[in-house]
Design a protein around this nucleic acid. Sequence first.
DNA 1: GAATCGACTGAGAGCGCTCCCAGGGTCTGA
DNA 2: TCAGACCCTGGGAGCGCTCTCAGTCGATTC
Lengths: 341, 341
Amino acid sequence: MTEQTAGSRPTLEAVAAHAGVSRATASRVVNGGAGVRTPLVEKVRRAVEELGYVPNHAARTLVTRRNGAVAVIIAEPEFRVFSDPFFEQQVRGISRELTAHDAQLVLLWVEGPGDHDRIARYLGGGHVDGALAFSLHSDDALPAVIDRARIPVVFGGRPTPGTAPTIPFVDCDNRGGAREAVRHLVGLGRRTIAHISGPPDQTSAVDRIHGYRDVLIDADPALVCQGDFTEESGARAMAELLDRRPDVDGVFVANDLMASGALLTLRERGVRVPEDVAVVGFDDMDSVVRRTRPALTTVHQDIEGMGRLMVKLLMRLLDGTGPEVPESVITPTSLVRRASA
Amino acid sequence: MTEQTAGSRPTLEAVAAHAGVSRATASRVVNGGAGVRTPLVEKVRRAVEELGYVPNHAARTLVTRRNGAVAVIIAEPEFRVFSDPFFEQQVRGISRELTAHDAQLVLLWVEGPGDHDRIARYLGGGHVDGALAFSLHSDDALPAVIDRARIPVVFGGRPTPGTAPTIPFVDCDNRGGAREAVRHLVGLGRRTIAHISGPPDQTSAVDRIHGYRDVLIDADPALVCQGDFTEESGARAMAELLDRRPDVDGVFVANDLMASGALLTLRERGVRVPEDVAVVGFDDMDSVVRRTRPALTTVHQDIEGMGRLMVKLLMRLLDGTGPEVPESVITPTSLVRRASA
DNA sequence: GAATCGACTGAGAGCGCTCCCAGGGTCTGA
DNA sequence: TCAGACCCTGGGAGCGCTCTCAGTCGATTC
């Protein structure tokens, strides 16, 4: 019996032969060695080492029905989602946690509805044990596509109500964070507090408005101006707000990027921050916060931690541990006080 | 949700039975249907449809020894490689081309030397057919790790000489592009042309200096000032250059980001661009070029195309088509003339 | 009309691994 | 010293698919 076939990699069979044990025993050792006597474990380990044995992943998956890979679905309906620092941090958290679980990250990049079929086929094809996706817009058909694949999925961000009710998600406490931001402004003695909101088809934006309204129940509707989460839109919204209500003395902006834009407008108009108008952002995005003048007071969320949490939730789903449909997780936010408010 | 086969998914066997053919015939149809009579093809197709059959990837891989996945190795020895627009574009190109080849992208995120073992094991474990990696710094041990895995690999960017001699790469014509940039400055009648270079442990930076020297053989060494590819370093280098040689009337900067910094310094010092000093960058990075004043003349490279090319090269390696060791590809660059030179 | 040929089809042998189950060895208690 | 209990170990049966190879069947040719 030849031990090592030239060319191809050694198999478990070869390791077993080399160690003088059966394939079953070799397999046990390779998978942790529980229930195998120490001397045999040693022998097998040595054989593995000497032969440079690496388990064949496909063969293992075929019988275990587990392949140790998780898909991360990144949809790019618009400009540069991928290089968004928010995404980067979340994906990093996911990657780290996945590594800790010895699972692999398979990137599924969706460029449009034309890809949905491909994605569905892939997810359904048993290539991955589960998937992580990000809920973006309410008109996105992706959640439905993913749902159809019938594999465990966890969302990053709360999906639009009704889109995917059975899928657990991880989101930060957008509403609570917004409330805290607004209360902080109130606590500072501000009387006329405006809100620059994000696009209404994203739940995070909607939740943040709700948080604002929770505190300021009777606020003048003219005090809410909508942006689209970009810096320019924040600048524009701030200008409009200033025109509508020159008496504004506090602004809660739905994200840091727009807050940065708002700060620019305020400076241009000669409005002092925080003396005349106090500004609070949301996200505590490092790359933005570092460069605003004055330093931005904002609502911090642990983005990387949310990524890790998504993986943990998914792993629980895969293990079958915990409740059948694990409840979603809302992570806490905290206000970071800097100079702008 | 719907009923569908309780528990496990239908197998080829089931499809065959449903269609009244053998497993072999069903397999042929699923894999293109060549050599099967039309009525049978129809029958099998219908069975596949009705049963919602999806091939089991692991089983297929087990016998074909091909798994249709390619690893993209992203090393992050420093701050935010991932959200770098350069990377984003390249990865997008890779992703698109991979999809066109029906292959899957597996992301391998390397966070440090501690991960090397994991990566090596993964690459060697038959999880992927090949790998794509980016050569970053000369002191990086990653190329060696990858080389040891003995699977087809293609690099993005030329590796440091001696690191991985047998691995093909895709790089743009850094030297030629640099030469064109400098010649353009010469053609503009500039006499004292400086160069702001990148970090010397990256081949792209080295090649660009070489290109500069190719044209300006006798240039004063004081005309070359080193940066680290960041905007700030470009600003600093420009300041130093101005101090050393106030008579400078042209600068070739090794990348756009540093060029943007240089432009800032020039403006601060009241030096007119391009009247007093003409500036040429490198990369034609959209996000940078769009915001410089004046608009930056720069050397364009097709980054997404390079990503696609990496995949094409790898596919050729996997197919066994073409030469045993395919030669690397150097993509052309082109000068984009804008206002700064 | 029979022989030859070519085009399809299907049976069966694995790919490399895990896991069930029976059998053998060892250890303990009487 | 021997039976019974308990551990280990190894044989063997697949996991679902591809692929070779032999066999079938209709068509073509003389």
